[in-house]
Design a protein around this nucleic acid. Structure first.
Length: 214
DNA sequence: CAGATGATGTTCT
DNA sequence: GAACATCATCTGC
């Protein structure tokens, strides 16, 4: 039984929490089966940040971001996609970390089915085999290498809004890292897909990880 | 490869 | 009515 992610590590600034969440494991136990993945890319958002959903104060959509740390903030965007955040910081403060990419760990066939992807077939000649391995790698990378891809692969959507991620009874759980992510292997950069506060380097990812979004 | 575009609907001004 | 913490697919080098 895996340990939960420590709450203390979320009761810090969102940028620090975003760094500490790299390597953590997200698990979803659903009727379709269990899926899990390691967090490899994150972004920080807070109230004083014009790019944040909490910049304008409380609204029905963002209320969970103002609540206690360790809960799920999910939102629907572009008429199609869901994105998943871990609420951080003290109760009453509108802070969260967007999870932008996962390295798939378990339930990969379920993820592929949810993503509408069929895994490449068996190998023939060594050349076909090489092609298949390249194709397989592309498929695996495409499962959860983006904020909306990962919610689709993991089956996360509006129903899990507000879920307590550090509770053994929850369907969606956040577990402690299984590997250590040294500070020097964490890269910071500008956040993706925003129009405001584009200069802040509040995006973080594990250097060299194959599953980081492009 | 890069860059453009359409899909699609909720939220907030 | 505009904006949107995106993605897949298309075009043209």
């Amino acid at each position: 039984m895996a340990a939960f992610f420590p709450l203390d590590a979320l009761l810090v600034s969102p940028t620090r929490a975003a760094r500490q969440l790299l390597g953590a494991v997200l698990v979803h136990r659903s009727a379709e089966g269990a899926t899990s993945g390691m967090i490899v890319e994150t972004e920080a958002y807070c109230e004083t940040d014009p790019a944040s959903h909490t910049f304008g104060g409380r609204t029905p959509r963002n209320q969970v971001m103002f609540g206690p740390a360790g809960h799920a903030y999910v939102y629907f965007t572009y008429g199609i996609h869901w994105c998943f955040n871990v609420v951080t910081g003290p109760d009453g403060r509108g802070e969260a970390v967007l999870v932008r990419a996962l390295e798939p760990l378990s339930g990969l066939s379920i993820m592929a089915r949810r993503r509408g992807i069929t895994l490449p077939g068996a190998a023939g000649s060594w050349l076909e085999r090489a092609n298949d391995e390249a194709a397989t790698r592309r498929v695996l990378v495409s499962l959860s290498s983006g904020p909306a891809k990962l919610t689709q692969a993991m089956g996360l959507h509006g129903e899990i809004y507000g879920t307590h991620l550090l509770d053994p009874r929850s369907a969606v759980q956040l577990h402690a890292p299984q590997i250590r992510v040294p500070a020097r292997t964490i890269v910071s950069s500008t956040r993706i897909g925003i129009r405001k506060a584009t200069q802040k380097r509040w995006r973080f990812h594990i250097a060299g990880n194959r599953y980081v979004s492009r």
